[in-house]
Simulated assay, not measured.
Amino acid sequence: MIYVFSNRNIENDNWLGDEFNAEGPENIRVAKYNADTDKKLTFYPETDPQLLPSLKVIQEVEASDKPCCIFLHGFNQSLKKNLGKCEEIESYGVNVIAFSWPSNPGPQAIWRKIREYKRAVRNAERSSLAFERFFNLFDDYVDINGRFNNIKAMVVHSLGNYLLQHFVQGSGFENQPGFLNNILLHQADVNSHRHELWADKLAINSRVMATVNETDNTLDFSDVLNPDRLGNTLGNLNSERLQYFNFGKIPQAEDEHRLWIEPTVENASAKSFFESVFKGKKVNTGHFEFDRSRNCFHIK
């Protein structure tokens, strides 16, 4: 099952657009994706103060026999694209809770991509309060019910890591994601230099991992505008709390940005890595080569 928490605008009562919620970028609506029927969203009513939409979703995923993975997407994602990635993660045998933000704020023309990217960066900054509120909803549940049984992992993809960074560095951060077993900074489109200053704050209670693929074509585009990105450089892997996993030695990962799909996961070690991460389990690093000079595990 896929659930969507979003600060996007609602379209036609059953879909989300590429703008902010009409009531402000900090406002969140909650929906279920009907993948098996009309492929639309069903929004939870906001009228019952005793059963908030967020609480209803949490109750549903906690009653499931599957673990649940939170997913924060990256740049240039319409709702349709976002849900497609959610379905990829769901195929690993997990439910998915997506935080969907307006990261597609412009036309599709390639020659305007730089302008659109810069607007998406600003949208990520403006979405950090909504993301804080999103995690406060889970934190409230933990205060009442204790640790979650099923919600144990979060995957943050590409430019979504910049949104996460902005949240962690904000005044409202109180380690709300600390109930998670695993947090994966997947092909992070953030500055590699000194990333540990904010990322380490997530690792107080959780296992925090970061993937690296030096041949990542998408992050090559980001490199045109930015310093080295965490997701595509083996330099600056300086955290003593994070674990870094280099996918660059897998031939199938050549040029790939989304490492949890084929052809990358034709490699058994890569597939096992993502199965463990998505389900909130500890990754068995005994199969990987640890490179002390780089402070990372090489997946082969």
Rank of each mutant, 00 (worst) to 15 (best):
A268E: 13
N181W: 07
L159Q: 14
L237M: 10
W260M: 03
E87C: 12
L72Q: 01
Q252S: 15
K271Y: 08
I151N: 06
E60L: 07
T264S: 06
N181T: 15
T233P: 05
D216W: 02
Y44L: 15
E116F: 05
S192M: 05
R241H: 04
I204N: 03
S100R: 00
Y44S: 08
G84F: 11
A199M: 02
F221G: 10
F99P: 02
E23A: 09
D220L: 15
A98H: 05
F135R: 01
F75E: 02
V4I: 14
S158R: 03
V121S: 10
I58F: 03
S100M: 02
T285D: 03
N145C: 09
R29Y: 13
E23F: 07
D140W: 05
H193L: 14
R229T: 04
V190I: 13
N95T: 09
K282M: 11
P263E: 10
W111E: 04
I250Q: 01
N136Y: 07
V265G: 05
P263D: 08
F290S: 10
S103L: 14
E62F: 13
H287V: 13
G172L: 11
S103Q: 13
A203T: 01
E174D: 12
E90G: 00
K81M: 05
L185Y: 03
F274N: 03
S276Y: 03
A120N: 09
G74D: 11
S64F: 00
G170L: 06
S269W: 10
F167E: 00
H287E: 14
E87P: 04
D223S: 15
G286D: 12
S192R: 02
E289T: 15
R194E: 15
T215C: 14
L230Y: 05
E87D: 11
D216S: 05
S293D: 14
S100C: 11
D139M: 08
P105L: 11
M209A: 04
A270L: 04
V190H: 02
N149P: 01
P105V: 12
P227T: 08
T218D: 13
E214H: 05
N76H: 07
D38A: 04
K39C: 01
N238I: 00
S6A: 06
G24D: 11
N191A: 12
N217D: 14
A35N: 09
A130S: 12
E196M: 04
K152L: 10
S276A: 14
K282V: 12
N82F: 10
G74S: 14
W111I: 10
G93K: 14
W101P: 05
D220W: 14
A63M: 08
T215W: 07
L41D: 02
A203C: 09
R119P: 02
L83V: 15
E275G: 12
F71I: 08
K113N: 13
A124P: 04
F173N: 03
R194C: 10
V155I: 15
L52N: 09
W111V: 12
K300Y: 08
K66V: 06
G160W: 03
F173H: 01
N149L: 06
V277Q: 06
I89L: 07
